[in-house]
Design a protein around this nucleic acid. Sequence first.
DNA 1: CTGTTAGCGCATTCAT
DNA 2: ATGAATGCGCTAACAG
Lengths: 321, 321
Amino acid sequence: MSSIRDVAKLAGVGVGTVSRVTNNSGYVAEQTRKKVEAAIKELGYEPNEMAKSLIANNSKIIALILPTIHHPLFSKFAYHVEQVLNANGYKLLICNSNFEVEKELEYIKLLNKKVIGGIIFITNSNINDYLSENLPIVTIDRHLSNEMIYISSDNYAGGRQAAKHLLSKGCSNLGFLGGFPNVETEVHKRKQGFNDFLTDKNIPYTSFEEEDVIEDFDKYIEQFWNKHSSLDGVFAVTDILAYKLINYLHSIGKKVPEDVKVVGYDGIDLFDISQTKLTTIVQPIDIMGEAAAESVMNIVEKKKVKHKYILPVELRQGEST
Amino acid sequence: MSSIRDVAKLAGVGVGTVSRVTNNSGYVAEQTRKKVEAAIKELGYEPNEMAKSLIANNSKIIALILPTIHHPLFSKFAYHVEQVLNANGYKLLICNSNFEVEKELEYIKLLNKKVIGGIIFITNSNINDYLSENLPIVTIDRHLSNEMIYISSDNYAGGRQAAKHLLSKGCSNLGFLGGFPNVETEVHKRKQGFNDFLTDKNIPYTSFEEEDVIEDFDKYIEQFWNKHSSLDGVFAVTDILAYKLINYLHSIGKKVPEDVKVVGYDGIDLFDISQTKLTTIVQPIDIMGEAAAESVMNIVEKKKVKHKYILPVELRQGEST
DNA sequence: CTGTTAGCGCATTCAT
DNA sequence: ATGAATGCGCTAACAG
C-alpha cells in the first residue's frame, strides 16, 4: 500500500498539498490538484484511516450492544441504525452481550481505547456504577441516569391501549403475562399503563411475572396458564411470549381468539412466516433505530441532542383478538 | 485520557518499559513491573488501539457484508460469527448492502484504508472484477475465484434429499419453486441436486424461476401457482418462499400437507412464531458462521486455511409434508 | 498557494 | 534490564 509520501513524491509536491487535496481543505491551485489526483489514481492511494483517527482522536465507529442480534426485533433495529450511520460515514460494530456484564464493560473500554466513538446500548444490566458521566452512550428502553440520552417507545400508552382493546373486544377476565422484571427498565411501563387503565375503571386483572430468569419458556407459559386458566383476554409483554402462549393454547385445545384473546407488544416482522397474525402494539422500531443513530452521532460531534425520545406506538389489529 | 508518556513519568521509567509491561514482551524486572502497573491503575490508562494498529498496520475488525441483517438466517449467522470473533479479540462490523454493489465496494476499500482486517461476504453481485487476488475475504454460498475461500452448506445433497423426501411421501407431481438465479451462486446446486435425483429415476418435474428480481413476492407466488396448480409436492428454494407458498395455498383453500406437500431450505429459527412447522433442509448456519469467522482470522494471521467448506445438511421433518 | 516540520500514541531498535 | 531515539501515516501550523 502506498502512503501519502509516495503520492507527494510522484506528483512532485509536498505531503501537505496532498493532504489538502484529499481533504478538500485549504487552498490548492487547480494545476497542482490535477497532478496530485493523477498520482493518487496511478498509485491507487487510499488514506490510512487509522492514522487520521489517531490525529483526530476519535473514531467513526459506533458499537451496538444488545442481548443477541438473532432476534427479529433487534435485527430490524440494527438494520436501521446501520443505514443511518452509514449514510453519514459511520460504521456499525455489533456486540452480542448475551446479558453478560463483562462483555458489556469490555465494549465500554473500547471507548477509551478509541476503537469506537460511541455506543447504543440495549441492556438489562446494572451498569450505572461503571459508567462515568458524559460518555457518548444512548440507551434503549432504559433510563440509566439523568445525563444519559435514552430512546423508547411509549410503553405506558401501549399498555393502556392493550387494556382498552381487550375490553372493547368483550373480554371480562383479563391477565397480564410479564417477563423477568429484575431490573428497572422502561418496559415496566407496559404493565403500568395496563394496570392504570383498568384500575381507573375499577376492573380487576391478574398478573404473572417471574423474578428469576427461566430458561424454559414453554414451562413458563404452562405455569402461567395453570395458574390463570380462566382468563379470556391476555396482554403479553412481548410478541414472542404472545406467540408462545397462542401455540400453547392451541396445543391444549383452546381457540384463539374465540376462547382467549391475546395482544402482544413489539410488532416484530414475520416475513409471512406466521399463519395467525397477532394483534399487537407496534413499536416504531425503524424510527427508534434512526433516532438512536442520529443521537449518538450528535453526541460524538458535540451537537445538540434531545435527551429523551418517547416514540408513539400503534395497535395493529390481527386475528388473535 | 492519559497516554503512555503520563504513565512513564508517574512510574519514573521510560516509555519503552511501559510498552514492554502492557505487551508482556521483552525483559522487565519484577520491581519495575509493579511500579508501572501501579501507575497504570492510578491513571486508568488504556493503550490507544488506533496507535497500535497504525504501527502493526492491521486491524482486528472484521466486516460482515450481507444483503440485510434483518433476516432470520443472516442474523443467526452474524450471531455466531461475532461469538467466535469476539472470543479471539476481534470485533464485528455489519454492512447491509441491500444488494447495492457500490456499498459493497465501499467496504472493500476499508480493507485498504486499514479500518478493517478482513471481510465475510454474502452477496449476489458480480464483484470479481473489483477484487484483486489474495484479499482477506471469505465468501458464503459463492465460489468467486479459485483463490478465494468459500463456505456453503451442501446445497446439492440438500436438493437431492428434498426430491427423495417428497417422493417418499407419495407425491407424483413435483415442482421446484426457485428464486432469481441471475448470478451463479452455490444456491443453484439446490436445483441441480433436485433435478439430478429425479432425472436419474426418469421422473419429470416442473420448474419455476424468474430472471429479474420481483419486488412483490406474493404476486410471484401467485404466478407460480397459476402456472402449476396441479402440483402435489413442491421444493421451495428457501424457507421464506415455502412459508409464503403455504400461506397462499391456505388462502385459496388448499390444505398442506394433505393436498400439497412443501419442503423448504434453510431451517430458519422461528421462536415458536409459526404454527405449522415446516419440513425443510436445515443448514448448519451456526457452524457455517463459526467456520467463516475462523477462516478470516486465519487469513489475517497468515495461518493455514482450508479453501472450501461444504457443510452437511439435514432434513427436518415438520408438518408440511 | 505550497513545502517543511512537529507531533498524534505507541512499538521497536540500539546502546548502555 | 532499561531509557532514548526513530518512525508508523497523517494533519495542522507556519513560514515563505
